[in-house]
């Protein structure tokens, strides 16, 4: 499907990782702070989405950037090139929607 909508939580996670790898909690905090606390993902929402993104090959687990040994509970994730592409595609899709909304109801969107 061309119009396969990316669930908001997954899109937000992709966006959170655009500026570099983060661990799960870091992603959550990034999303929360950038939405002024409005979007605060619970653990299940967070890791459910991460699981699906990893399965789709958009996210991969990477080593701790600080060089600490791998802790099974604190894993770092980075975007794969496909993930970066997916984020860009979703951004384009949204831009397109926004343009339509702007054209039909200027100033309201």
């Amino acid at each position: 499907m061309a119009d396969d909508v990316l669930p908001p939580a997954e899109f937000r996670i992709l966006l959170a990782l655009l500026d570099g790898p983060k661990h799960g909690h870091g992603i959550k905090v990034d999303v929360r702070d950038r939405t002024g606390g409005r979007v605060d993902m619970g653990p299940g929402t967070l890791y459910g989405a991460i699981k699906r993104l990893v399965a789709r090959g958009w996210l991969q687990e990477v080593a701790d950037p600080a060089g600490a040994p791998r802790d099974d509970r604190r894993r770092y994730y980075a975007l794969t090139p496909e993930g970066r592409g997916a984020a860009a595609a979703e951004t384009d899709r949204m831009r397109e929607l926004l343009a339509i909304a702007e054209a039909k109801a200027p100033g309201r969107a």
Partner: peptide
């Protein structure tokens, strides 16, 4: 098995 650990950690932080 795969995601319970990270979820627990995150829940603890919250």
């Amino acid at each position: 098995r795969e995601w319970g650990g990270p979820m627990e950690l995150e829940a603890r932080l919250q």
